[in-house]
Design a protein around this nucleic acid. Structure first.
Lengths: 217, 217
DNA sequence: CTAAAAGTTTAGACAAATCTAAAAAATATT
DNA sequence: AATATTTTTTAGATTTGTCTAAACTTTTAG
């Protein structure tokens, strides 16, 4: 078994490499962990000793199959707990991240399988992210970022790639929640900010915000 | 905020002193924590510095009001999670202790208040132990230990004072679960073992087992 | 293609929680 | 009351995860 810290390193490495599958750099990990590069070097040596990652000096790290399986399991737990918090305890989608961050380290596969069943085997968490099943399999439907849509194109909001409370509350206020149909009506030349139609209401979002909204065309 | 370890020390000190309110000894803590006396000395100095306990060298420790409040809050969380596991996730009463031992350290009062509400504000956990409310108040109904009953006396099973899986499974097998009416039909001279009537079935338990069964006469 | 900048690792140190062995205090025994 | 036993504390060491400062690689830019 791993410590909470080791689990957090694995999870971060997983998130940093899941798109690209390219080696993850020490500094990138340090930034996400909120530690210094030197500390990361120490830890990745330890994880490499345990065969959870592959590490070559100065070349960054990649997850091994075992490491990836472990990381995905943590992600599974995180997302299931988020569903629980929203569906059963009536938390808002912007309130659950930090609590799930603690709950994800609770160590009982029996607990997680029963929680999954209690929640009726949800496929996605409150932010649209897919929930891996107990074998680590999940839909990897790739969505388009909203900033890629052109004027007059439209699609459904399927997820977000940023989980901060500030961001999610902002979307909430704009009515930009999961399942909504959005249509791009204009893109400003000046700063690229985007004008949208959501439920016949016209709203304006920055390019930065649009980047974190995932769309099914 | 405290570390998990500090929380565990407080909880153990609370359990060791809640009956008697007498100073708790270093060795007693060490035994419950599964550590050595020397480690306990180090930790109680730290807890004393934080004003969570009162410590005088060689004289054991007592909780301060703050320390007791903290300990009771951990107990509250533990027991609420146990109710959740049994009522919502269909765990058996002998399976929940270790998982609740982890969950009790999750740090969010919002989470606990919502969980309490979700469970409809239960008064007791699956072993009959009272659940403190959010102000730390709870029924301190004191029950009689089953070994104190004399022949022909009877009462209701209201709780157990031992939470090991082995013990609870044993009770389960005997049909000695919460709410059952039991009547002492005989007490063996030889070893003090007790013959009981439970739902018109005659069973036999050792004195040691009887000590851990709490009865309302 | 070399020099500067950026990124990474090493060395040595620290805090938390634990340990063993030895010393000191409290308690029990004769 | 003196001694033996038990309990507790101290001293010094270890492990985990972190740090700073300095050294070393790799990458970038002129």
């Amino acid at each position: 078994m791993q410590s909470f810290t080791e689990e957090n390193y694995l999870k971060i490495i997983y998130h940093l490499s899941s798109d690209t599958d390219v080696a993850v750099q020490t500094n990138a990990i340090a930034e996400k962990m909120g530690t210094k590069a030197a500390s990361v070097t120490d830890m990745i040596k330890k994880l490499a000793d345990k065969q959870l990652i592959i590490y070559q000096k100065y070349q960054g790290v990649k997850l091994t199959d075992t490491g990836r399986r472990t990381a995905i399991n943590i992600v599974r737990k995180h997302r299931l707990w988020e569903v629980f918090l929203v569906e059963k305890l009536s938390f808002k989608w912007d309130e659950v991240h930090d609590i799930a961050e603690e709950l994800e380290h609770i160590n009982s596969s029996e607990l997680i399988e029963r929680l999954d069943e209690f929640l009726a085997f949800p496929k996605n968490d409150p932010h649209g992210d897919p929930i891996p099943d107990k074998d680590g399999k999940f839909d990897s439907a790739t969505f388009i970022k909203l900033n890629k849509l052109k004027t007059n194109e439209q699609g459904l909001v399927m997820g977000v790639s940023e989980h901060s409370s500030a961001f999610l509350k902002h979307l909430e206020k704009l009515g930009l929640t999961l399942g909504k149909l959005v249509k791009v009506t204009d893109i400003t030349d000046f700063d690229g900010s985007i004008e949208l139609l959501v439920e016949s209401k016209k709203i304006n979002i920055s390019r930065e915000v649009a980047k974190h909204i995932l769309i099914k065309a």
